[in-house]
């Protein structure tokens, strides 16, 4: 287990939502752990409590109860020296240029000598050199995400909160951001990734947690990342009975879909899948597909989303 960097214990936030003082529990007894070198995906549909949780970590709102610990101590504003935050789209100082926003941002950190070279190099790395004199509100959505990324990462934080980092990015931009996030993990940074694209979450995250109505409904802590992957074998031209006769001695697949003479099989264990593949191919059964497959896991997450929406 990696070193925990941020631990949330029994966090609860209740808002007095309206003038009638009808209380609304945005986050309910939430406990989470974020570890160094791990990317944690925070999922949940709108109103699930993700943003409230992020705001409590940043100290924008105070919890009614519970604790947030950073490196074993209650979190304080000083810990934000090593926390990076990439806000949702357009939550940037709109009338400043990327250059001014970056200079102002870096000046808020002790120990960083803000020079022209530093600003210029940072903007160049993010692909913003050409746009450094434009106002942020004049930039495209994708360039705005780059500005937000630059502000979140330029002070080399140990813990990063990335809120919808890829919204509005073109495929090239998404690939670049994916690469950057993976580099953060390699550099042993802890990342809290808040986004709705399940495929990206699955690709990037070591841990996945899902919130619903402020409560934690799923955490992949007890599940290795490899367990999310299944092995998919697709065969055709053989009836169900014949298939069972051929593979009767082998352990059954985890999931199975049969339609006439076509069979789709999923295995949790690669070795088990290979045994099936070997047994069926040696009998001349037509193998249509054999691949690593994430879709059962994604369907599981989607089912949780749907269940939550109900």
């Amino acid at each position: 287990m990696n070193e925990p960097i941020l631990v949330i214990k029994d966090l609860t936030k209740i808002f007095n939502a309206d003038v009638l003082k009808k209380k609304f529990c945005a986050v309910d007894s939430l406990s989470l752990t974020f570890e160094e070198g791990k990317v944690t995906g925070l999922l949940g549909h709108n109103g699930a409590g993700k943003t409230t949780t992020i705001r409590m970590i940043l100290g924008l709102i105070r919890p009614n109860s519970g604790q947030i610990e950073f490196r074993g101590k209650p979190i304080s504003y000083l810990d934000r020296r090593i926390i990076g935050y990439m806000p949702e789209t357009n939550r940037l100082p709109q009338s400043l240029t990327p250059e001014e926003a970056l200079r102002s941002h870096l000046n808020c950190y002790e120990g960083i000598k803000v020079t022209k070279e530093l600003i210029s190099n940072t903007l160049e790395k993010a692909g913003l050199e050409k746009h450094k004199k434009k106002k942020i509100k004049e930039l495209s959505k994708g360039l705005g995400r780059r500005v937000a990324w630059t502000l979140a990462t330029t002070h080399d934080p140990d813990f990063l909160i990335l809120d919808e980092p890829m919204s509005g990015l073109d495929p090239l931009g998404r690939a670049e951001f994916t690469e950057w996030i993976l580099q953060l993990r390699q550099r042993n940074k802890a990342v809290l990734l808040c986004m709705h694209e399940l495929e990206m979450i699955d690709q990037l995250c070591d841990e996945v947690v899902m919130l619903s109505r402020g409560r934690l409904i799923y955490a992949s802590h007890n599940e290795e990342k490899s367990e999310r992957v299944m092995w998919h074998l697709s065969v055709s031209g053989i009836g169900r009975e014949s298939l069972e006769n051929l593979t009767g001695a082998l352990p059954a697949p985890s999931l199975r879909e049969t339609q006439d003479l076509s069979h789709k099989l999923w295995f949790k264990d690669q070795q088990q899948a290979l045994k099936w593949l070997k047994a069926l191919s040696s009998e001349g059964v037509l193998i249509q597909e054999f691949k690593e497959d994430h879709s059962p896991y994604l369907n599981r997450l989607l089912a949780m989303y749907k269940g939550d929406a109900k």
Binding site: R55, L58, L60, R80, Y85, L92, Q94, C108
Partner: peptide, 13 residues
């Protein structure tokens, strides 16, 4: 414009 969130993510009270 929400930029207060970014400001508050910096280490200043």
């Amino acid at each position: 414009d929400g930029s207060i969130e970014l400001s508050m993510s910096r280490p200043l009270p």
